[in-house]
Amino acid sequence: MFKVAGALLVIVAAGALGLLVAGSYARRPQELRALQSALSLLETEIVYAATPLTEALEQVARRSESCVSGLFARAHAGLASRTGSTAQEAWERALNEYYPNSYLRPDDLAVLQGVGKILGASDRQDQAKHLRLACERLRTQNLKAEEEARRNVRLWRYLGLFAGLAIVLILV
């Protein structure tokens, strides 16, 4: 009786682990897509409406998907507090808090750090150019991430389950 329960437990745990890893592969493209649309929202605010950055970030935080809105909300809070920090500092602080809890890779982080360097610091044309470039780079990362996800999601799902089964078989 205990043996069966134990075996089930092992299988479920290993399966869940596999799903978790698979999930992380699926999450990254999702997050990258959300970031792309958030950045193009920001571009619209900046280029067409010339909304001041603090307000623009707030707007983007409100309208973007929940997995990335935290980044923009933090950057907005950092700027709005008027503690004398620059847009770049506020953005980097927000990134530092956001990155560890995200599914992004160092490559993706580098693109976002690049955004911080120019944020608000030039005229509209220039802002548009840089934001579009960042979007483009995120798009290529996304293509790669999706390809990777396709390969790995199924693999890890089954891998977890079968590893669980294998362990059970060995122990029995």
Partner: peptide, 17 residues
Amino acid sequence: VVRTVELVTGSSLYAVE
């Protein structure tokens, strides 16, 4: 100076073109 400019423009040079 750079920081003052950032603060007076609300980090939005593009908005005060």
